[in-house]
């Protein structure tokens, strides 16, 4: 009688996960990428959001928001498509179409460099909750360049 009572009381506890996920952890591991990030040069901040099943990052802050020549807010003046050159740089989606492809990795996306209007293949690796390796490349991943981005509002603070 005592044994069955003990089992009845303990069984629900045994079914509970020993280490429940942190309340800050997203349900989908890929969503760890969502947040505001700052590239190593500190000249911009990029907000990563999820649209459909993919991840995108847009510029939400610029250290120098205005064009030094015109004094007007910067636009995407180097866009290869002339018709789109009036697109504001603040709000421009420079990370596009990333898929969560593995533990701490997002790939199949592109990164756009507004300085020269070029788009590169890109892989994002999360080194820790607050650090990203952003590797842009053309063709061969090994021949690319990596930049380190920091999360603006760090987790765990």
């Amino acid at each position: 009688m005592m044994r069955s009572l003990t089992l009845t009381l303990l069984l629900p506890l045994l079914l509970i996960q020993p280490f429940p996920p942190s309340p800050n952890a997203p349900a989908n591991e890929g969503d760890n990428l969502i947040g505001v990030w700052e590239p190593s040069n500190g000249r911009a901040r990029v907000k990563v959001e999820k649209i459909g099943a993919k991840y995108y990052g847009k510029i939400v802050w610029l250290r120098e928001p205005n064009d030094p020549v015109t004094g007007a807010p910067k636009v995407d003046k180097n866009n290869p498509d002339e018709a789109l050159r009036s697109t504001p740089l603040r709000g421009y989606r420079i990370l596009k179409d990333f898929v969560h492809t593995g533990k701490n990795e997002w790939s199949e996306g592109t990164i756009y460099d507004p300085e020269n209007g070029s788009t590169y293949s890109c892989v994002i690796t999360m080194k820790d909750d607050n650090t990203l390796d952003i590797r842009g490349y053309i063709g061969v991943k090994a021949l690319g360049r990596t930049d380190v981005w920091k999360r603006l509002q760090t987790k765990g603070q």
Partner: peptide, 22 residues
């Protein structure tokens, strides 16, 4: 609304910006 840009996306491929007004 100071400026607006329109894009389309689907499972078939990459997001495409199709229009802008600024």
């Amino acid at each position: 609304i100071r400026s607006a840009s329109l894009s389309v996306a689907s499972e078939a491929g990459d997001m495409e910006q199709v229009a802008v007004l600024n």
